[in-house]
Write a protein that binds this DNA or RNA. Structure first.
Lengths: 252, 252
DNA sequence: GGGTATTTGTCCGTATGTATT
DNA sequence: AAATACATACGGACAAATACC
Protein backbone atom coordinates (compact mmCIF):
# COMPACT_ATOMS: atom_id res chain seq x y z
CA UNK A 1 0.00 0.00 0.00
CA UNK A 2 1.88 2.93 -1.32
CA UNK A 3 -0.50 5.58 -0.09
CA UNK A 4 -2.05 5.14 3.36
CA UNK A 5 -5.76 4.50 3.39
CA UNK A 6 -6.60 7.61 5.36
CA UNK A 7 -4.82 9.72 2.77
CA UNK A 8 -6.67 8.04 -0.05
CA UNK A 9 -9.93 8.84 1.67
CA UNK A 10 -8.84 12.41 2.35
CA UNK A 11 -7.74 12.91 -1.24
CA UNK A 12 -11.01 11.54 -2.53
CA UNK A 13 -13.03 13.80 -0.27
CA UNK A 14 -10.84 16.76 -1.16
CA UNK A 15 -11.54 16.14 -4.83
CA UNK A 16 -15.25 16.09 -4.18
CA UNK A 17 -15.02 19.33 -2.26
CA UNK A 18 -12.87 21.14 -4.80
CA UNK A 19 -15.06 19.99 -7.67
CA UNK A 20 -18.09 21.27 -5.77
CA UNK A 21 -19.58 17.80 -5.65
CA UNK A 22 -19.90 18.65 -1.98
CA UNK A 23 -20.85 22.31 -1.78
CA UNK A 24 -19.43 24.92 0.57
CA UNK A 25 -21.20 24.72 3.85
CA UNK A 26 -22.68 21.32 3.08
CA UNK A 27 -22.37 18.40 5.41
CA UNK A 28 -20.04 15.53 4.65
CA UNK A 29 -21.26 11.99 5.11
CA UNK A 30 -21.10 11.00 8.75
CA UNK A 31 -18.20 8.95 10.02
CA UNK A 32 -20.46 5.95 10.02
CA UNK A 33 -21.38 6.53 6.37
CA UNK A 34 -17.77 6.98 5.38
CA UNK A 35 -16.83 3.74 7.14
CA UNK A 36 -19.23 1.99 4.83
CA UNK A 37 -18.31 3.90 1.69
CA UNK A 38 -14.60 3.28 2.03
CA UNK A 39 -14.73 0.03 3.96
CA UNK A 40 -12.45 1.45 6.61
CA UNK A 41 -12.52 1.60 10.37
CA UNK A 42 -13.84 4.60 12.18
CA UNK A 43 -10.38 5.70 13.33
CA UNK A 44 -9.07 5.60 9.79
CA UNK A 45 -11.98 7.71 8.59
CA UNK A 46 -11.35 10.11 11.42
CA UNK A 47 -7.66 10.37 10.43
CA UNK A 48 -8.78 11.37 6.95
CA UNK A 49 -11.14 14.02 8.31
CA UNK A 50 -8.45 15.33 10.62
CA UNK A 51 -6.17 15.82 7.62
CA UNK A 52 -8.85 17.88 5.89
CA UNK A 53 -9.44 19.80 9.10
CA UNK A 54 -5.83 20.84 9.54
CA UNK A 55 -5.80 21.94 5.92
CA UNK A 56 -8.77 24.16 6.60
CA UNK A 57 -11.13 22.42 4.19
CA UNK A 58 -13.68 21.10 6.65
CA UNK A 59 -14.72 21.62 10.24
CA UNK A 60 -16.35 19.22 12.65
CA UNK A 61 -19.18 20.13 14.98
CA UNK A 62 -19.82 17.71 17.83
CA UNK A 63 -23.31 16.33 17.73
CA UNK A 64 -23.92 17.67 14.24
CA UNK A 65 -21.41 16.42 11.71
CA UNK A 66 -18.57 17.48 9.47
CA UNK A 67 -19.05 20.43 7.15
CA UNK A 68 -17.17 22.03 4.29
CA UNK A 69 -15.94 25.41 5.50
CA UNK A 70 -17.60 28.48 4.05
CA UNK A 71 -15.33 30.89 2.25
CA UNK A 72 -15.41 34.27 3.92
CA UNK A 73 -14.25 37.40 2.16
CA UNK A 74 -11.36 38.62 4.26
CA UNK A 75 -11.12 41.86 6.14
CA UNK A 76 -8.55 44.10 4.51
CA UNK A 77 -6.18 46.28 6.51
CA UNK A 78 -4.16 48.87 4.62
CA UNK A 79 -0.75 49.25 6.18
CA UNK A 80 0.17 52.33 4.19
CA UNK A 81 -2.57 54.36 5.84
CA UNK A 82 -1.59 56.20 8.98
CA UNK A 83 -3.68 55.37 12.02
CA UNK A 84 -6.23 58.11 11.80
CA UNK A 85 -8.37 57.86 14.90
CA UNK A 86 -6.75 54.61 15.87
CA UNK A 87 -8.61 54.32 19.17
CA UNK A 88 -11.95 55.73 18.22
CA UNK A 89 -13.35 52.91 16.17
CA UNK A 90 -12.77 54.77 12.93
CA UNK A 91 -10.13 52.39 11.79
CA UNK A 92 -9.85 52.30 8.04
CA UNK A 93 -11.24 49.20 6.48
CA UNK A 94 -11.66 48.26 2.87
CA UNK A 95 -14.49 45.94 2.16
CA UNK A 96 -16.36 45.22 -1.02
CA UNK A 97 -19.64 46.07 0.62
CA UNK A 98 -18.58 48.71 3.09
CA UNK A 99 -21.62 48.44 5.27
CA UNK A 100 -19.75 47.23 8.28
CA UNK A 101 -19.36 48.62 11.74
CA UNK A 102 -16.18 48.48 13.70
CA UNK A 103 -15.83 49.03 17.40
CA UNK A 104 -13.26 48.57 20.08
CA UNK A 105 -13.22 48.29 23.82
CA UNK A 106 -11.97 51.08 25.98
CA UNK A 107 -8.26 50.72 26.43
CA UNK A 108 -6.88 48.76 29.35
CA UNK A 109 -3.96 50.87 30.49
CA UNK A 110 -0.96 49.41 32.27
CA UNK A 111 2.41 50.69 33.35
CA UNK A 112 5.04 48.11 32.50
CA UNK A 113 8.74 47.56 32.24
CA UNK A 114 9.81 47.27 28.64
CA UNK A 115 10.81 43.84 27.46
CA UNK A 116 13.99 43.52 25.48
CA UNK A 117 12.29 43.72 22.14
CA UNK A 118 9.94 46.55 23.07
CA UNK A 119 12.81 48.58 24.48
CA UNK A 120 14.77 47.96 21.33
CA UNK A 121 11.97 49.11 19.07
CA UNK A 122 11.40 52.28 21.08
CA UNK A 123 15.13 53.00 21.52
CA UNK A 124 14.85 52.75 25.28
CA UNK A 125 16.96 51.09 27.92
CA UNK A 126 15.71 47.64 28.85
CA UNK A 127 13.37 47.73 31.85
CA UNK A 128 12.46 51.32 31.08
CA UNK A 129 8.92 52.21 32.00
CA UNK A 130 6.39 52.19 29.21
CA UNK A 131 2.66 52.73 29.01
CA UNK A 132 0.68 49.87 27.54
CA UNK A 133 -2.77 50.52 26.08
CA UNK A 134 -4.58 47.33 25.13
CA UNK A 135 -7.79 47.06 23.15
CA UNK A 136 -10.02 44.41 21.68
CA UNK A 137 -11.38 45.32 18.28
CA UNK A 138 -14.54 44.06 16.63
CA UNK A 139 -16.19 44.20 13.22
CA UNK A 140 -19.92 43.71 13.09
CA UNK A 141 -19.71 42.51 16.65
CA UNK A 142 -17.28 39.73 15.79
CA UNK A 143 -13.77 39.70 17.22
CA UNK A 144 -11.39 41.14 14.68
CA UNK A 145 -8.06 41.93 16.24
CA UNK A 146 -6.18 42.51 19.46
CA UNK A 147 -4.04 45.59 19.74
CA UNK A 148 -1.54 46.84 22.28
CA UNK A 149 0.26 50.14 21.94
CA UNK A 150 3.36 51.02 23.94
CA UNK A 151 4.51 54.56 24.65
CA UNK A 152 7.65 55.73 26.44
CA UNK A 153 6.90 57.14 29.88
CA UNK A 154 8.74 60.34 28.94
CA UNK A 155 5.72 61.37 26.88
CA UNK A 156 3.59 61.47 30.02
CA UNK A 157 6.28 63.25 31.97
CA UNK A 158 6.40 65.85 29.23
CA UNK A 159 2.69 66.46 29.48
CA UNK A 160 0.74 63.84 27.54
CA UNK A 161 -1.10 62.75 30.64
CA UNK A 162 -4.13 61.40 28.84
CA UNK A 163 -2.01 58.43 27.82
CA UNK A 164 -2.39 57.01 31.31
CA UNK A 165 -6.14 57.40 31.42
CA UNK A 166 -8.28 54.43 30.52
CA UNK A 167 -10.36 56.34 28.01
CA UNK A 168 -10.35 56.76 24.27
CA UNK A 169 -8.25 59.62 22.97
CA UNK A 170 -10.18 61.28 20.18
CA UNK A 171 -9.71 62.02 17.39
CA UNK A 172 -6.54 59.96 17.81
CA UNK A 173 -3.40 59.62 19.85
CA UNK A 174 -1.22 61.10 17.14
CA UNK A 175 -3.33 64.23 16.93
CA UNK A 176 -3.21 64.48 20.69
CA UNK A 177 0.56 64.12 20.80
CA UNK A 178 0.92 66.70 18.06
CA UNK A 179 -1.22 69.16 19.98
CA UNK A 180 0.42 68.62 23.36
CA UNK A 181 4.01 67.86 22.50
CA UNK A 182 4.41 68.82 18.86
CA UNK A 183 5.16 65.23 17.91
CA UNK A 184 4.28 64.42 14.33
CA UNK A 185 4.22 60.99 12.79
CA UNK A 186 6.81 61.24 10.03
CA UNK A 187 6.87 57.55 9.19
CA UNK A 188 6.43 54.04 10.46
CA UNK A 189 7.70 50.54 10.00
CA UNK A 190 5.56 47.42 9.97
CA UNK A 191 7.11 44.07 10.74
CA UNK A 192 4.91 41.06 10.07
CA UNK A 193 5.19 37.45 11.12
CA UNK A 194 2.82 34.49 11.24
CA UNK A 195 2.74 32.36 14.36
CA UNK A 196 0.51 30.00 16.31
CA UNK A 197 -2.24 31.44 18.46
CA UNK A 198 -1.84 31.42 22.22
CA UNK A 199 -4.58 30.45 24.61
CA UNK A 200 -5.93 33.95 25.14
CA UNK A 201 -6.12 34.57 21.43
CA UNK A 202 -7.80 31.26 20.70
CA UNK A 203 -10.40 32.20 23.30
CA UNK A 204 -11.03 35.73 22.10
CA UNK A 205 -11.24 34.82 18.42
CA UNK A 206 -13.19 31.64 19.15
CA UNK A 207 -10.70 29.45 17.35
CA UNK A 208 -10.77 25.73 17.68
CA UNK A 209 -8.06 24.90 20.18
CA UNK A 210 -6.31 22.50 17.85
CA UNK A 211 -4.00 25.31 16.83
CA UNK A 212 -4.95 25.15 13.17
CA UNK A 213 -5.61 28.84 12.60
CA UNK A 214 -2.45 30.87 12.95
CA UNK A 215 -2.14 34.54 13.78
CA UNK A 216 -0.77 37.43 11.78
CA UNK A 217 1.27 39.62 14.12
CA UNK A 218 2.13 43.14 13.04
CA UNK A 219 4.62 45.26 14.97
CA UNK A 220 4.31 48.89 13.93
CA UNK A 221 6.89 51.38 15.15
CA UNK A 222 6.02 55.02 14.56
CA UNK A 223 8.73 57.69 14.21
CA UNK A 224 8.45 61.41 14.80
CA UNK A 225 9.84 64.20 12.66
CA UNK A 226 13.23 63.82 14.35
CA UNK A 227 13.48 60.12 13.53
CA UNK A 228 12.80 59.04 17.10
CA UNK A 229 10.34 56.23 17.76
CA UNK A 230 7.46 57.31 19.97
CA UNK A 231 4.98 54.46 19.70
CA UNK A 232 4.94 50.72 19.14
CA UNK A 233 1.67 49.07 18.22
CA UNK A 234 1.35 45.30 18.16
CA UNK A 235 -1.70 43.96 16.38
CA UNK A 236 -2.78 40.37 16.07
CA UNK A 237 -5.25 39.08 13.50
CA UNK A 238 -6.53 35.57 12.81
CA UNK A 239 -4.83 34.58 9.57
CA UNK A 240 -7.82 32.83 8.04
CA UNK A 241 -9.96 35.93 7.59
CA UNK A 242 -7.64 38.87 7.21
CA UNK A 243 -5.64 40.39 4.41
CA UNK A 244 -2.98 43.07 4.49
CA UNK A 245 -2.44 45.62 1.74
CA UNK A 246 0.41 48.08 1.36
CA UNK A 247 0.83 50.76 -1.27
CA UNK A 248 4.21 52.21 -2.18
CA UNK A 249 4.88 55.15 -4.43
CA UNK A 250 2.18 56.15 -6.85
CA UNK A 251 -0.53 53.56 -7.40
CA UNK A 252 -3.81 53.91 -9.21
CA UNK B 1 -12.54 14.81 34.01
CA UNK B 2 -12.85 18.39 33.04
CA UNK B 3 -9.83 18.50 30.78
CA UNK B 4 -9.15 15.53 28.51
CA UNK B 5 -6.12 13.48 29.42
CA UNK B 6 -4.31 14.13 26.15
CA UNK B 7 -4.61 17.86 26.71
CA UNK B 8 -3.29 17.56 30.24
CA UNK B 9 -0.29 15.70 28.91
CA UNK B 10 0.20 18.23 26.11
CA UNK B 11 -0.05 21.15 28.53
CA UNK B 12 2.43 19.54 30.87
CA UNK B 13 4.90 18.91 28.06
CA UNK B 14 4.36 22.42 26.70
CA UNK B 15 5.23 23.82 30.10
CA UNK B 16 8.42 21.82 30.20
CA UNK B 17 9.35 23.04 26.75
CA UNK B 18 8.58 26.69 27.41
CA UNK B 19 10.44 26.62 30.70
CA UNK B 20 13.42 25.10 28.90
CA UNK B 21 13.23 22.01 31.06
CA UNK B 22 13.37 20.31 27.68
CA UNK B 23 15.76 22.32 25.55
CA UNK B 24 15.29 23.37 21.95
CA UNK B 25 16.32 20.55 19.69
CA UNK B 26 16.27 18.02 22.50
CA UNK B 27 14.40 14.77 22.30
CA UNK B 28 11.19 14.23 24.20
CA UNK B 29 10.67 10.99 26.08
CA UNK B 30 9.56 8.26 23.70
CA UNK B 31 5.91 7.36 23.41
CA UNK B 32 6.62 4.32 25.48
CA UNK B 33 8.22 6.42 28.22
CA UNK B 34 5.34 8.87 28.21
CA UNK B 35 2.84 6.02 28.54
CA UNK B 36 4.57 5.12 31.76
CA UNK B 37 5.04 8.66 33.03
CA UNK B 38 1.40 9.63 32.57
CA UNK B 39 -0.15 6.20 32.92
CA UNK B 40 -1.96 6.65 29.64
CA UNK B 41 -2.37 4.55 26.55
CA UNK B 42 -0.17 4.98 23.56
CA UNK B 43 -2.95 6.53 21.49
CA UNK B 44 -3.61 9.11 24.16
CA UNK B 45 0.06 9.99 24.34
CA UNK B 46 0.11 10.30 20.58
CA UNK B 47 -2.90 12.62 20.66
CA UNK B 48 -0.97 14.87 23.03
CA UNK B 49 2.08 14.87 20.77
CA UNK B 50 -0.07 15.59 17.74
CA UNK B 51 -1.45 18.67 19.49
CA UNK B 52 2.06 19.93 20.11
CA UNK B 53 2.96 19.13 16.53
CA UNK B 54 0.14 21.15 15.00
CA UNK B 55 1.11 24.03 17.25
CA UNK B 56 4.61 23.87 15.88
CA UNK B 57 6.30 23.06 19.18
CA UNK B 58 7.65 19.63 18.37
CA UNK B 59 8.29 17.43 15.36
CA UNK B 60 8.36 13.68 15.07
CA UNK B 61 10.95 11.71 13.15
CA UNK B 62 10.11 8.08 12.43
CA UNK B 63 12.70 5.76 13.84
CA UNK B 64 14.30 8.50 15.90
CA UNK B 65 11.88 10.16 18.25
CA UNK B 66 10.05 13.39 18.99
CA UNK B 67 12.06 16.58 19.21
CA UNK B 68 11.49 20.16 20.27
CA UNK B 69 11.68 22.30 17.15
CA UNK B 70 14.65 24.59 16.80
CA UNK B 71 13.88 28.25 16.49
CA UNK B 72 15.21 29.62 13.24
CA UNK B 73 15.76 33.31 12.73
CA UNK B 74 13.41 34.23 9.93
CA UNK B 75 14.32 35.53 6.53
CA UNK B 76 13.23 39.14 6.22
CA UNK B 77 11.78 40.55 3.03
CA UNK B 78 11.39 44.30 2.79
CA UNK B 79 8.27 45.15 0.83
CA UNK B 80 9.09 48.83 0.56
CA UNK B 81 12.18 48.10 -1.52
CA UNK B 82 11.64 48.03 -5.25
CA UNK B 83 12.72 44.82 -6.91
CA UNK B 84 16.22 45.79 -7.90
CA UNK B 85 17.57 42.95 -9.96
CA UNK B 86 14.60 40.81 -9.19
CA UNK B 87 15.66 37.96 -11.45
CA UNK B 88 19.38 38.09 -10.94
CA UNK B 89 19.65 36.70 -7.47
CA UNK B 90 20.36 40.06 -5.90
CA UNK B 91 17.15 40.18 -3.97
CA UNK B 92 17.47 42.28 -0.88
CA UNK B 93 17.58 40.35 2.32
CA UNK B 94 18.06 41.56 5.85
CA UNK B 95 19.68 39.09 8.16
CA UNK B 96 21.48 39.55 11.41
CA UNK B 97 24.54 37.81 10.06
CA UNK B 98 24.36 38.76 6.42
CA UNK B 99 26.64 36.05 5.16
CA UNK B 100 24.05 34.32 3.09
CA UNK B 101 23.78 33.49 -0.57
CA UNK B 102 20.60 33.66 -2.54
CA UNK B 103 20.00 32.11 -5.92
CA UNK B 104 17.13 31.38 -8.20
CA UNK B 105 16.44 29.07 -11.08
CA UNK B 106 16.24 30.34 -14.61
CA UNK B 107 12.70 31.43 -15.30
CA UNK B 108 10.21 29.00 -16.74
CA UNK B 109 8.33 31.09 -19.29
CA UNK B 110 4.78 30.33 -20.33
CA UNK B 111 2.17 32.09 -22.41
CA UNK B 112 -1.16 31.90 -20.64
CA UNK B 113 -4.66 33.26 -20.67
CA UNK B 114 -5.22 35.55 -17.75
CA UNK B 115 -7.42 34.26 -15.00
CA UNK B 116 -10.09 36.53 -13.68
CA UNK B 117 -8.02 37.84 -10.83
CA UNK B 118 -4.83 38.27 -12.85
CA UNK B 119 -6.72 40.15 -15.58
CA UNK B 120 -8.27 42.34 -12.95
CA UNK B 121 -4.95 43.21 -11.36
CA UNK B 122 -3.35 44.06 -14.70
CA UNK B 123 -6.43 45.92 -16.01
CA UNK B 124 -6.84 43.48 -18.88
CA UNK B 125 -9.83 41.73 -20.38
CA UNK B 126 -10.33 38.28 -18.99
CA UNK B 127 -8.64 35.60 -21.12
CA UNK B 128 -6.17 38.15 -22.41
CA UNK B 129 -2.76 36.72 -23.15
CA UNK B 130 -0.11 37.18 -20.50
CA UNK B 131 3.48 36.08 -20.13
CA UNK B 132 4.22 34.07 -17.02
CA UNK B 133 7.77 33.84 -15.72
CA UNK B 134 8.14 31.38 -12.87
CA UNK B 135 11.17 30.94 -10.63
CA UNK B 136 12.21 28.95 -7.62
CA UNK B 137 14.32 30.94 -5.18
CA UNK B 138 16.82 29.62 -2.67
CA UNK B 139 18.84 30.94 0.24
CA UNK B 140 21.99 29.06 1.19
CA UNK B 141 20.76 26.27 -1.05
CA UNK B 142 17.52 25.87 0.88
CA UNK B 143 14.17 26.57 -0.79
CA UNK B 144 13.02 30.05 0.11
CA UNK B 145 10.17 31.14 -2.08
CA UNK B 146 8.28 30.52 -5.30
CA UNK B 147 7.69 33.46 -7.58
CA UNK B 148 5.64 33.96 -10.71
CA UNK B 149 5.51 37.24 -12.57
CA UNK B 150 2.83 38.06 -15.15
CA UNK B 151 3.25 40.64 -17.89
CA UNK B 152 0.68 41.79 -20.46
CA UNK B 153 1.48 40.52 -23.94
CA UNK B 154 1.36 44.07 -25.26
CA UNK B 155 4.78 44.66 -23.74
CA UNK B 156 6.27 42.03 -26.03
CA UNK B 157 4.35 43.33 -29.02
CA UNK B 158 5.78 46.76 -28.30
CA UNK B 159 9.31 45.44 -28.33
CA UNK B 160 10.17 43.89 -24.97
CA UNK B 161 10.91 40.56 -26.61
CA UNK B 162 13.27 39.31 -23.93
CA UNK B 163 10.26 38.74 -21.72
CA UNK B 164 9.48 35.58 -23.69
CA UNK B 165 12.98 34.18 -23.44
CA UNK B 166 13.73 31.69 -20.72
CA UNK B 167 16.76 33.56 -19.48
CA UNK B 168 17.48 35.99 -16.69
CA UNK B 169 17.04 39.63 -17.60
CA UNK B 170 19.88 41.54 -15.99
CA UNK B 171 20.16 43.84 -14.20
CA UNK B 172 16.39 43.54 -13.85
CA UNK B 173 13.14 43.50 -15.76
CA UNK B 174 12.24 47.02 -14.71
CA UNK B 175 15.51 48.41 -16.01
CA UNK B 176 14.98 46.50 -19.22
CA UNK B 177 11.45 47.82 -19.65
CA UNK B 178 12.63 51.34 -18.95
CA UNK B 179 15.31 51.06 -21.60
CA UNK B 180 13.13 49.46 -24.27
CA UNK B 181 9.72 50.98 -23.64
CA UNK B 182 10.32 53.89 -21.32
CA UNK B 183 8.23 52.23 -18.60
CA UNK B 184 9.20 53.31 -15.11
CA UNK B 185 7.99 51.76 -11.89
CA UNK B 186 6.19 54.62 -10.20
CA UNK B 187 4.67 52.53 -7.44
CA UNK B 188 3.37 49.15 -6.40
CA UNK B 189 0.78 47.52 -4.22
CA UNK B 190 1.34 44.43 -2.11
CA UNK B 191 -1.60 42.31 -1.05
CA UNK B 192 -0.85 39.63 1.52
CA UNK B 193 -2.81 36.63 2.67
CA UNK B 194 -2.00 33.47 4.61
CA UNK B 195 -3.29 30.15 3.29
CA UNK B 196 -2.62 26.42 3.39
CA UNK B 197 0.16 25.03 1.23
CA UNK B 198 -0.76 23.06 -1.85
CA UNK B 199 0.91 19.81 -2.82
CA UNK B 200 3.54 21.39 -5.07
CA UNK B 201 4.52 23.88 -2.38
CA UNK B 202 4.71 21.22 0.32
CA UNK B 203 7.04 19.29 -1.93
CA UNK B 204 9.30 22.19 -2.87
CA UNK B 205 9.62 23.55 0.65
CA UNK B 206 9.88 20.06 2.14
CA UNK B 207 7.00 20.62 4.49
CA UNK B 208 5.41 17.78 6.37
CA UNK B 209 2.29 16.92 4.43
CA UNK B 210 0.04 17.34 7.44
CA UNK B 211 -0.65 20.87 6.29
CA UNK B 212 0.63 22.44 9.47
CA UNK B 213 2.86 25.08 7.92
CA UNK B 214 0.88 27.69 6.04
CA UNK B 215 2.07 29.93 3.25
CA UNK B 216 2.39 33.69 3.02
CA UNK B 217 1.18 34.75 -0.41
CA UNK B 218 2.08 38.21 -1.66
CA UNK B 219 0.52 39.68 -4.80
CA UNK B 220 2.52 42.68 -5.98
CA UNK B 221 1.12 44.84 -8.75
CA UNK B 222 3.54 47.36 -10.22
CA UNK B 223 2.35 50.58 -11.84
CA UNK B 224 4.13 52.74 -14.39
CA UNK B 225 4.40 56.51 -14.46
CA UNK B 226 0.96 56.74 -16.07
CA UNK B 227 -0.74 54.72 -13.37
CA UNK B 228 -1.11 51.65 -15.55
CA UNK B 229 -0.23 48.24 -14.12
CA UNK B 230 2.49 46.49 -16.09
CA UNK B 231 3.49 43.59 -13.89
CA UNK B 232 1.98 41.28 -11.33
CA UNK B 233 4.33 39.23 -9.16
CA UNK B 234 2.98 36.48 -6.93
CA UNK B 235 5.37 35.24 -4.29
CA UNK B 236 4.83 32.43 -1.84
CA UNK B 237 6.86 31.93 1.35
CA UNK B 238 6.58 29.30 4.09
CA UNK B 239 5.08 31.18 7.01
CA UNK B 240 7.22 29.55 9.68
CA UNK B 241 10.54 31.02 8.56
CA UNK B 242 9.79 34.32 6.90
CA UNK B 243 9.07 37.85 8.01
CA UNK B 244 7.86 40.83 6.03
CA UNK B 245 8.87 44.42 6.73
CA UNK B 246 7.46 47.59 5.22
CA UNK B 247 8.63 51.14 5.76
CA UNK B 248 6.38 54.14 5.20
CA UNK B 249 7.37 57.78 5.23
CA UNK B 250 10.55 58.69 7.03
CA UNK B 251 11.93 56.01 9.34
CA UNK B 252 15.27 55.84 11.05
C1' DG C 1 -38.43 20.29 30.23
C1' DG C 2 -37.29 15.46 29.34
C1' DG C 3 -36.03 11.60 26.70
C1' DT C 4 -34.07 9.57 22.71
C1' DA C 5 -31.45 9.14 18.59
C1' DT C 6 -27.57 10.86 16.10
C1' DT C 7 -22.90 12.41 15.66
C1' DT C 8 -18.44 13.56 17.02
C1' DG C 9 -14.88 13.33 21.02
C1' DT C 10 -12.04 10.68 24.09
C1' DC C 11 -9.68 6.52 25.56
C1' DC C 12 -8.30 2.01 25.58
C1' DG C 13 -6.10 -2.38 23.57
C1' DT C 14 -3.76 -4.81 19.86
C1' DA C 15 -1.27 -5.82 15.62
C1' DT C 16 1.61 -4.77 11.89
C1' DG C 17 4.38 -1.65 8.83
C1' DT C 18 8.23 1.56 8.04
C1' DA C 19 12.27 4.34 9.09
C1' DT C 20 16.41 4.77 11.57
C1' DT C 21 20.22 3.43 14.27
C1' DA D 1 20.32 -8.60 11.36
C1' DA D 2 18.37 -6.76 15.42
C1' DA D 3 16.53 -3.23 18.27
C1' DT D 4 14.12 1.04 18.70
C1' DA D 5 10.64 4.48 17.62
C1' DC D 6 7.05 6.40 15.17
C1' DA D 7 3.06 5.43 11.52
C1' DT D 8 -0.93 3.07 10.13
C1' DA D 9 -5.05 0.38 10.94
C1' DC D 10 -8.29 -2.25 13.26
C1' DG D 11 -11.63 -3.11 17.06
C1' DG D 12 -14.45 -1.70 21.06
C1' DA D 13 -16.50 1.27 24.82
C1' DC D 14 -18.24 5.28 26.83
C1' DA D 15 -18.78 10.46 27.08
C1' DA D 16 -20.40 14.85 25.41
C1' DA D 17 -22.87 17.84 22.29
C1' DT D 18 -26.69 18.54 19.45
C1' DA D 19 -31.22 17.95 17.29
C1' DC D 20 -35.76 16.45 17.48
C1' DC D 21 -39.97 14.75 19.25
Amino acid sequence: MNEPIYRQIADDLRGKIESDEIAHGAQLPTESDLMGQYDASRNTVRDAIRLLTTRGLVETRPGQGTFVVEQVSPYVTTLSDPDIGEESGLYRLDLAASQHTSASTHPRVEIQRASSRIANELHLEQDSTVISRHQKRYIDGAPWSLQTSFYPMRLVEQGATRLIQAADIKPGVVSYLTGVLGIEQAGWRDSIIVRAANEAEAGFFRLSDDGRVSMIEDWRTAFDQHGAPFRLTVRVYPADRNQLVANFGSVS
